[in-house]
């Protein structure tokens, strides 16, 4: 089994719902985005296109981040999920330099969202801020997945642009979409073999 995600760029409207629902799900501190959305433009006026590109950890089958990690904190879990054990991480950030997809964030010195005004009751209840001095990233919401739910960003996406499932199962929705719509991995030439595929806009 290999967990994977398909993001349909034709459906995505760049609403940032994934970025923020992920933040809400994981209570990540400022500056840490397991999911994020970037906007790029291509072409010249008037043949211009604005591109919304949602990003997350691609849970690469050949994860350079894991190879670069000196402590084993970055490791591969069931279904190919790449995760960081925050109790083991030394914060050397080699994994950040190794990841070609900007999926990792160093939690330098977590501050609450309202800064000196202190943490909100939400942040206190969720223990957000996480561990100081470690690297954080998306874990495909493995807890949710193991409880039979879709990852938070998938469950919430208003445009139904995201689909989660087993890439190894040819009958799964993700496999079907990749087949039918010509799913592509980002920077496939790097040989990382991401488990996240994009469908053309």
């Amino acid at each position: 089994m290999r967990y994977g995600m398909v993001i349909d760029l034709k459906r995505c409207v760049g609403c940032y719902g994934c970025q923020l629902s992920c933040k809400a799900e994981h209570a990540t501190p400022p500056g840490v985005f397991y999911a994020r959305v970037v906007k790029r433009e291509s072409g010249t006026f008037p043949n211009t296109r604005l591109v919304f590109l949602p990003l997350l950890c691609f849970h690469c089958a050949n994860p350079p981040c894991v190879d670069a990690c000196p402590t084993g904190a970055s490791h591969v879990r069931t279904g190919g999920v790449v995760d960081v054990d925050h109790d083991v991480c030394v914060g050397c950030r080699a994994c950040m330099q190794a990841c070609p997809y900007g999926a990792r964030y160093y939690n330098r010195d977590p501050r609450p969202y309202f800064g000196d005004q202190g943490p909100t009751p939400y942040e206190t209840a969720r223990g957000s801020g996480g561990k100081r001095g470690v690297v954080m990233k998306c874990n495909f919401c493995l807890d949710r997945v193991q409880a039979g739910l879709d990852p938070a960003c998938v469950a919430n996406c208003p445009a139904h642009a995201r689909t989660f499932g087993d890439l190894d199962d040819p009958d799964s929705e993700v496999a079907r979409l990749i087949r039918l719509r010509g799913g592509t991995q980002l920077e496939a030439g790097l040989g990382t073999d991401p488990s996240v595929y994009y469908l053309p806009p």
């Binding site: 719902g17 923020l20 629902s21 933040k23 809400a24 009751p121 469950a155 919430n156 208003p158």
Partner: peptide
């Protein structure tokens, strides 16, 4: 303490999904 806002799938309004602003209401 409110720890998460999600869409209500029982309703035709939003059908269980929210935009980025909606999930951020906690703040």
């Amino acid at each position: 303490v409110l720890v998460k806002i999600e869409g209500n799938p029982d309703s035709a309004i939003g059908r269980g999904r929210l935009c980025g602003k909606g999930v951020s209401g906690i703040m």
